[in-house]
Simulated assay, not measured.
Amino acid sequence: MKLIAESGSTRTEWALIDGDCVTEHIFTEGINPFFQSRREISRSVRLGLPEHFFRKRFEQVFFYGAGCSSPERKGIIGASLVAQFKSPIEVESDLLAAARGLLKNEAGIACILGTGSNSCFYDGKNITRNVRSLGYVLGDEGSGAVLGKLFLADCLKGLAPAALIETFYEKFRISADDALESVYSRPFPNRFLSTFSYFLNEHLDSEYVYDLVSQNLRSFFVRSVTQYDYQNYPIRFVGSVAYNYSSVLHQVAKEFGIVIDNIVESPMNGLVEYHTQNISPISHF
C-alpha cells in the first residue's frame, strides 16, 4: 500500500493506493516549508487526515510539494511525515509531480499555473532545466497570485471598471485596509491573492478581465516557456489557473505557434499511473 500527496500552497491532495487502485482520495490544506515549521506541518497533517491513516504501515509515502526544491526544505517535510507515518518517505518538488504526472516517461516541457507558477524541461526521468519561478513578488507570471495581485491593485487604484469594482467589494466584503493587511501582515498572502482569480473567471466576458488574464498568461510564455526548446517537444499544463482559463491559454499559446495537447487541474491521476508502473528510489528520512 502506497500513499501519494501532491501539495500546492492552497491545498494538498492525498491518494491511498492499494495495488493499482485508489482506495481513498482526500483533500487537506496546503503545506509549504517556506511558510510553515516542522511542528506546524505535523499538526496540519495530523488534523487533516483520518486517524486510520496513521495506523497503517505504508510501503512508501511519496510527497510532492511547493517549496520542496532544496535538501533543507525537503528535510523539514520528511521529518514531519516520518514522525506521523513511521514509513519510508520520498519528498520531491511539485514541479517533479507535474512532470511525472503530465509526461510519465516522455521528454517534454511541464508547466504549472496554479496559486504560483513554474516550468521545466523533463527528459523522461529527471528535470534537466528549470526557469526559476521566483515567487509572486519577483515572478510567478501566469499564476493566480499574480493575477489576483494585478486585479486587486487596479481595484484599489480605481483603474478597473467601476461596475466590476463594485461587484468585487460586494462579493468579498473587504475594505482597502483589510486587503493591505492580508497582503503585508498575515500568513499566506499568495493564497489570499489567488482567491481573486476565481472571481475573474466568473467575469471573463469583460474585455478588461480577458485582457488582464491573457496578458498575464502571455508573460508566462515570454518569460518562461520560450526559454526552452518549445518547438520540438510537447508542452503540457497543470493547475487550477491553467484548467479554469484553458480557452484563453490555448489562444495565447497559438500566438507562439504552440499547440497544447494536455491541460489538467491536478497531476494526481498521472502520478498514480506513474507510481504503479515505476520503481522509485526511497529517501531515508
Rank of each mutant, 00 (worst) to 15 (best):
S93D: 05
E207Q: 01
E181C: 09
L147E: 03
I89R: 04
S197Q: 07
V131P: 02
G116S: 13
F188A: 13
R129D: 12
N105T: 15
E181L: 12
L200C: 03
F121N: 04
E181H: 11
F199Q: 03
N118W: 09
L150S: 15
E166Q: 14
P88Y: 03
L81H: 08
L134T: 02
S119N: 15
A153W: 02
P88D: 03
S175H: 00
G124Y: 07
L152K: 07
R132Q: 10
G114W: 02
D205S: 12
E170K: 15
E90S: 14
H203Q: 00
E90Y: 10
S133L: 05
E202S: 07
R191A: 06
A107I: 08
V222T: 07
D211L: 00
S182F: 09
D94M: 13
A162C: 09
E202Y: 01
K125M: 13
F85T: 03
F220Y: 05
S194A: 15
S80D: 11
Y198V: 13
I89T: 04
T195Y: 09
F196N: 07
L200R: 01
G108C: 11
S175T: 13
A83E: 11
L81D: 06
Q84W: 00
I174M: 14
P88R: 02
L147P: 07
L81G: 08
Q215G: 05
A107G: 07
F172E: 07
G78T: 00
G78R: 00
S143A: 13
K157A: 05
T195E: 11
K125G: 12
A107H: 08
L164C: 10
S185G: 06
P161C: 00
Y198M: 12
G101W: 09
F85C: 02
I89D: 07
K157I: 00
L138C: 10
A162K: 13
K86L: 03
K125A: 14
F199H: 03
L113I: 06
S80M: 11
D211N: 00
P187D: 11
S119Y: 12
S194I: 05
C120T: 07
